[in-house]
């Protein structure tokens, strides 16, 4: 029984097809990484899963009572709105102060409750957004390009945190990333999207290889892994020119 699943999902913006015939399913407690080049429809798919866009065809099934925690790709709070971190975490539902403080500590940004949102750094804001999503005790956590703007150690630390959260809460995680080759090593599955599902598979953990050290440097603590694409087709106008698996 999956938490959320799409069947033959197609999305259109006017005459432009954003997604066609997408079938994906996310099971309880699973970490799924969704990758694809810019404009591949990743964010559209996320918006459809959230119910923000209506499918042109196909359908989306959600488990009854499914609670989704969402960490958006970017969020610009207008500087003219005075908003503290604590108040932001209490939108739209008031949360008890100790609960807010504990969650901020859990996501690695303790003591920020009274700081204004506009005074946060990018990395702090990302963790505040994560804390906000977790306060809803979600069954499914959707992170849209959550590591954008983080450096490599920052990304590694964030991945480690997500892994811990899955272990502690049992929440399924959908991690959206534009990095086509380096993914979170804890991913149970990787789905490559480019208007449709190109391929699906497991990340290859190569932490021990010297090439890995050369590629990622030290300090990522095995949180990152390579993903080997296995396309059975080629894209003409595609930014990632992978060798098809059968041509290897």
């Amino acid at each position: 029984m999956s938490l959320i699943a799409t069947e033959g999902l197609s999305l259109r913006y006017g005459p432009v097809a954003a997604l066609s015939n997408v079938n994906i399913a996310i099971a309880k407690g699973e970490i799924v990484t969704l990758i694809g080049p810019n404009g591949s429809g990743k964010s559209s798919l996320v918006r459809a899963l959230l119910g923000a866009v209506r499918p042109a065809a196909g359908r989306i099934t959600r488990a009854p009572g499914l609670k989704i925690g969402y960490v958006p790709q970017k969020l610009a709070v207008d500087a003219r709105m005075p908003l503290s971190v604590g108040r932001f975490l209490s939108l739209p539902n008031r949360r008890p102060e100790p609960e807010v403080a504990a969650m901020l500590a859990r996501t690695g940004v303790p003591g920020l409750e009274h700081r204004q949102i506009t005074a946060l750094s990018g990395g702090q804001f990302q963790r505040v957004l994560l804390a906000r999503a977790l306060l809803a005790a979600p069954d499914l956590l959707i992170l849209d390009e959550a590591t954008q703007g983080l450096d490599q150690p920052g990304t590694a630390a964030f991945y480690a945190l997500i892994e811990d959260i899955r272990r502690e809460t049992g929440a399924a995680i959908l991690m959206v990333s534009h990095d086509l080759h380096v993914v979170m090593s804890a991913s149970d599955r990787v789905i490559c999207l480019n208007g449709h599902v190109c391929c699906e598979g497991h990340p290859r953990v190569v932490t021990a290889a010297p090439e890995y050290r050369a590629l990622f440097g030290h300090g990522t603590h095995g949180t990152m892994a390579l993903y080997q694409h296995a396309h059975d087709h080629a894209h003409d106008a595609c930014t990632h020119e992978e060798k098809p698996a059968h041509a290897r």
Partner: peptide, 19 residues
């Protein structure tokens, strides 16, 4: 009030919260 604030901060976050 609370719903209006949430929608003003982010429509996507509001939608994820069921608004």
């Amino acid at each position: 009030w609370s719903a209006l604030l949430t929608v003003t901060v982010s429509e996507d976050l509001a939608r994820a919260a069921g608004l």
